[in-house]
Design a binder for these strands. Structure first.
Lengths: 264, 264
DNA sequence: CCGGCTGTGAAAATCCTGTGAACGCAGGGA
DNA sequence: TCCCTGCGTTCACAGGATTTTCACAGCCGG
């Protein structure tokens, strides 16, 4: 958002954050280069702030960032100005004063439209430990080797990895992966976590990714295997038995131990 | 354009034609089916004409034709109504009276946005494996031999090939080839993939191009046929039976095996 | 030591895709 | 005008792949 009208900015900011948006504010024109770096979905601008070069600036932005939703919100304007703006590449033009909710809705509409045909929505690949998670393939890899995840497995892994470090409750996980509320007593999440751990273990034996939090849910965080948090007292350091030397032709004797965490 | 305000319609019509547009006018809601057939770039509608089902209608249109620019132009409306409309899928909302030039500009802006994603130079031939796909002929060739693809088959193949390597979901494929949203349970994509595979197999038997990703959709990637990932243990190497020595005059004993991928 | 919670393996229930064929439509010819 | 042919859409089935559900055993915390 490029604007200096502090009242408007403040009110809108509040709304936007309530809606879960991430908002960057600026009081003056930003170089297009910076805008590119920000990876914005949409840009709301009051050309009054831009001075003489307003038209020029808008045109440049529109040309350089065709994927960006560009919305103008400014004071009085003539039809001719609005038409000129829209023809230059502005996607929507509003007149102050306007209701922040409507601004939000119009920004959404503009961003939605841009997302539509292009499906850049598919997030960028994530990487964690030896793992590379690629949404464009609906698959995770270790090096070149795919883990052969099924769709649900992939979505679960992707969700966890997106929220890396956070402990996610089962209910929340279920809600987001399955799309509807989890029935009481449903163990699907547990089962899929097991399958994931199996496949992760198979391709990346020296890392541990999914951690259990007793009574809560799971947390994704790649950690080199065999790390044992130093206990309060440096007692019996009978290290982790080197029981596995990567020799594992037998498919089910893999004795994996999952350290579980207590609360937080 | 769906409106009954004859003054507005007339004036706008004149402007639109002057701008080189082709305008269809209707005094009442048209069935979405007809709208699909018209292949519109944008739709301008006054919900007042639609009666009770206005919201419903708008929502249906927006859902079925995500590529269509949908603009409302109507009399007085509240912020809440506008927000509701925009959230339903309306792309822009104007209030009468408004200047026809601005209506034009806004329609252009909306249509431009949906062109963005689609506007690829329909000229560059693609080649993949033994295949050459020529948009200028709406046909694919192996050497000089055409595959005799029908229009839909060609478009499907072209889309897949354009996104080579990416896994495309059925819904997205349908959306982009058929131009509107896929109904639940529609198997058209599968059927066309089968036809494509048949024709590809016929002309280029030693390659496999379209790969199935269970639960997701398809991926285009030319691969020499007969590639069999080396198993973990180099056990029983009872090689791939040389059952076919390219001697296959009989049209239907062709046993093609399609390896399906789990997600990735 | 007891009452939840989780990890497991496997069976049972569902869902998904490949296929072959029937239908309905529209254009071309007779 | 009627018939034939090519094309796109829909159906129903069969064989698999994937998800759910179960019953148990091992852990966690108190």
């Amino acid at each position: 958002m490029i604007d200096t009208d502090s009242g408007f900015v403040t009110v809108f900011n509040k709304r936007a954050e309530a809606a879960g948006w991430q908002l960057n504010r600026s009081a003056g024109p930003l170089p297009p280069r910076d805008l590119v770096a920000m990876k914005l979905n949409a840009l709301l601008v009051d050309p009054a702030v831009l001075g003489d070069e307003a038209w020029d600036y808008l045109e440049r932005i529109a040309a350089m960032l065709p994927e960006l939703g560009l919305v103008v919100c400014t004071g009085r304007s003539t039809v001719a100005q609005r038409v000129r703006g829209l023809r230059l590449g502005v996607d929507d033009w509003m007149t102050k004063p306007c209701h922040p909710e409507e601004v939000l809705a119009r920004l959404e509409a503009v961003a939605r439209r841009h997302d539509n045909g292009r499906r850049e929505a598919e997030g960028a690949p994530l990487s964690a430990g030896e793992l590379e998670i690629r949404p464009d393939r609906f698959q995770a890899f270790v090096g070149e080797e795919p883990l052969d995840l099924t769709r649900r497995e992939f979505e679960l892994l992707y969700l966890l990895a997106e929220e890396r470090g956070q402990v996610l409750e089962r209910e929340r996980i279920y809600q987001r992966v399955w799309g509807y509320a989890m029935a009481h007593g449903d163990r699907s999440v547990d089962v899929f976590v097991r399958k994931l751990r199996q496949k992760l273990e198979k391709r990346s034996p020296s890392w541990s990714y999914i951690h259990t939090h007793f009574g809560i849910g799971y947390r994704f965080e790649p950690e080199p295997a065999g790390i044992v948090k130093e206990e309060l007292r440096p007692a019996a350091p009978d290290a982790v038995a080197p029981e596995s030397t990567a020799t594992e032709p037998h498919p089910n004797s893999s004795q994996v131990v999952h350290k579980t965490f207590t609360a937080g």
